[in-house]
Design a protein around this nucleic acid. Sequence first.
DNA 1: CCGTATCCACGACGATACTG
DNA 2: CAGTATCGTCGTGGATACGG
Lengths: 125, 125
Amino acid sequence: MGDTLEVETAPQCQAVNDILARVGDKWTVRVVMSLAEGSSRFNELRGIIPAISQRMLTRTLRNLERDGLVTRTVTPTVPPRVDYALTPLGQSLVGPVAQLGNWALANIAEVERSRRRFDAEGPGV
Amino acid sequence: MGDTLEVETAPQCQAVNDILARVGDKWTVRVVMSLAEGSSRFNELRGIIPAISQRMLTRTLRNLERDGLVTRTVTPTVPPRVDYALTPLGQSLVGPVAQLGNWALANIAEVERSRRRFDAEGPGV
DNA sequence: CCGTATCCACGACGATACTG
DNA sequence: CAGTATCGTCGTGGATACGG
């Protein structure tokens, strides 16, 4: 009982859920984790996360910038150079997200076993 | 380098992201948090989370059951009675989720300030 | 009481093509 | 290099009505 959780009674539930949804979207965690190891340029990130489309990388980074989790630094050369980096706020998110990520890694096997069991017995019963 | 995060190199990224997406959906966290305080019947949960529709509560609970995070106990009386409770696996998820929830609570103000700033300066520049 | 079925709106996401 | 524009698909989520 060490840690209390004041999550469910506040009207801020909406706001919290909003954050959770951002973290839960398809690419945010990947991008944040990549930037946690150092700032990167746009196409560097595309190399690190090959599956992401240009469009979604742009959108994800814009959202993170809007939320104050990432800085976008434009160097107006030719060709242009843009560097992305985590803000202190963004860095403070890495720990909690990693916790959840580690939980997922540790338990994904059991979850998938459960899913197969559920899907198998469903029609039968 | 205290805590390592083996999140981004594994092929399990897909699976992890899958878990994150489930946690990030609109109702899962609310339901899990409610059940963390004790098992509940269907309409009890509707009372605790008034904004959720019948359909979405059913879907959310089914997903949680499929993932092995929640048990569904049917008492075949008339009218029927159904109790939902967290499994040990589900309970083990409460801690990490609460961590992230607390981060969100602690930082939502700064995030929203950042959002307003971003939205204000966007068109101007 | 506890669902399922149906319909619909909306936003996330992907592919492709184009620009400064 | 680092985007924006456009189009299309898909899944989520809400409202409503019906069934066991």
